[in-house]
């Protein structure tokens, strides 16, 4: 199962892959146990968009993977100042769902996920 591909290009104005935010080695997929774990590296330790990037990845995966997968998105250890806080936010189902209720936030996320016009 190489669902890697779809995870590797969460389209973004400047693609996350191009920015080396998401890398192949930091994506772990376990098909038998239906788990996916993605570690992403914010561009700078104080990157204020880290939560948003994490959220975008998570939403993209939620939409691209079958229901059976448990999706875990977190920051590569030691690359962000408020790592724990962001990880907590991303792991919290309720908060992710609540964030997606917020029309403004959803708009930003969707913009990140729209295919780039070529």
């Amino acid at each position: 199962m190489s669902i890697m591909r779809s995870i590797n290009d969460p389209e973004h104005p400047l693609s996350l892959e191009e920015l080396n935010v998401v890398e192949q080695v930091r994506v772990k997929v376990n098909d038998e146990e239906s788990t996916v774990s993605v570690e992403f590296t914010p561009t700078i330790p104080h990157c204020s968009m880290a939560t948003l990037i994490g959220l975008s990845i998570k939403v993209k995966l939620l939409r691209s993977l079958p229901d059976r997968f448990k999706i875990d998105v977190h920051i590569t250890p030691g690359t962000h100042a408020s790592e724990e806080a962001v990880n907590k936010q991303l792991a919290d189902k309720e908060r992710v769902a609540a964030a997606l209720e917020n029309a403004h936030l959803l708009e930003v996320v969707n913009q990140c996920l729209s295919t780039r016009p070529v």
């Binding site: 669902i3 959803l106 708009e107 996920l113």
Partner: peptide, 24 residues
């Protein structure tokens, strides 16, 4: 099949964006 999944992902994410803020 991987090829099918690829198409499915592309189609489904486009459909998610439909009519949503930030989408088309």
């Amino acid at each position: 099949k991987r090829l099918v999944r690829k198409e499915a992902v592309a189609a489904r994410s486009e459909w998610f964006l439909l009519g949503n803020p930030g989408g088309r």
